[in-house]
Amino acid sequence: MRILVIKHGALGDVVRTSFILESLHEKFGSETEIWWLTSDAAFDLLRYHPYISKLVLASQLTSGKVAWVKEQRFDWVISLDDEPEACEILQDLEYDRLSGAYHDGTKMCYTDDVAPWFDMGLISRLGKETADRLKRENTKTHAQIFAEMLDIPYPRPSFYNNHLIERNVHRKYFADQNKFRVGVNLQAGSRWQSKALRMEEAIELIRQLRHQADEVLILGGIADFEKNRKLYLPFSEDERVVFIQPGQLLYFAAVIKYLNMIVSADSLALHLAIAQGVRNVSFYAPTSAAEIETFGTGVKVLSTSADYCSYRPDVDNSSITAARILEAIEELMGARV
């Protein structure tokens, strides 16, 4: 059995989608070949996955460097991106079965078997209004939806990193294993501003956590650097607060792996924490909390505003407060940190 998965982004989606790989192997046997076509940005998140037989970059295909991929025949192509560029490869491939998105020459479409997922998305054949309503009404997690529509065993979380990177990160930040460390990933890049915790609440959260944890680590990507720098300034003289400079994805993943707990927006950091079994508190305003499967590792804080889960970048997130997050931490830990 040779399967091709097409999934370029977003990065957090790539991580949680990779959970299906073990399930595909479990269903079709150890001889199953799984190829994955992805973006340059997501490559490191998949490069050490033992269930990926071949990892191919879309940029290599467009440049002709791996033209031999187009000479392969696949038993099943699972196409999970809704951008036309991601689906262009399909016109050059030979395959027996397609599940997912494709371009019919005039518009983006998707196969009936993946309607439970794509009906709620940007290319929904039902229209944006219905898609948004279905998203708000949905109670199934990403893992449950994918298990049902692909007819595979329920996915289990996993992430595979480079052991040398993990060892170096552990030596640099986590040598003292007696310390209780909480990571805070409170920003959300530039696209989904309302995913982030408001600055005054973020400062208050760290102010409280620094008295309860041995160390508070401020985390984020390159796009979050300036906001995180401002967040760190009130605590720059406090050795209990550590500003982790943004770096490579695998370095970021390794830092998260060794945390005792993380507080995170709906972002890559959250999915990396879930994948590595790190306890987590997550908060949601524009996006769906129901869709996130924490596999028993986390507690969620939901916006109480009327525009919750409206998938607008400017929703009202004022009901996500430091106080509510601290209450969720208590619930998660069974007591104060």
Rank of each mutant, 00 (worst) to 15 (best):
M1E: 12
I3M: 06
L4N: 05
V5H: 04
K7G: 02
K7L: 10
G12D: 01
V14W: 04
V15K: 04
S18W: 11
E22P: 00
E22N: 05
S23Q: 02
L24Y: 00
K27L: 01
G29V: 06
T32F: 07
E33R: 02
E33L: 02
L37M: 03
S39G: 06
D40N: 13
A41P: 07
R47C: 06
H49P: 08
H49K: 05
P50A: 12
Y51L: 03
Y51E: 04
Y51N: 01
L55A: 06
T62D: 05
K65R: 14
W68S: 15
Q72C: 15
R73L: 09
D75G: 07
V77D: 08
S79Y: 01
E83M: 15
P84N: 15
A86K: 14
C87V: 07
E88P: 07
L90P: 09
L90T: 12
D92C: 14
E94W: 05
D96E: 14
S99P: 04
Y102G: 00
G105A: 12
K107G: 01
D113F: 01
V114K: 01
V114Y: 07
W117E: 03
F118S: 00
M120V: 10
K128F: 08
T130C: 09
E148S: 09
E148L: 09
E148W: 14
E148M: 09
L150G: 05
S158R: 09
Y160N: 03
R171E: 14
F174G: 06
A175P: 04
V182P: 03
N185H: 13
Q187V: 05
S190N: 09
W192A: 05
S194T: 15
S194M: 10
S194W: 08
A196I: 02
M199N: 07
E200V: 13
I203F: 10
E204H: 09
I206W: 06
R207P: 00
R207S: 14
Q208K: 14
D214E: 10
E226G: 02
R229D: 06
K230N: 15
D238N: 15
V242G: 11
I244R: 05
F252V: 03
A253R: 02
A254L: 10
L259P: 01
L259R: 00
I262L: 11
D266S: 10
S267R: 03
L272P: 08
R279Y: 08
F283T: 05
Y284G: 00
I292G: 01
T294M: 13
T297Y: 10
V301I: 14
L302S: 10
T304A: 09
P313G: 13
D314M: 09
V315L: 04
N317K: 10
A323Q: 08
A323G: 11
R324P: 05
R324A: 07
A328T: 12
A328R: 08
I329V: 15
L332K: 08
R336I: 08
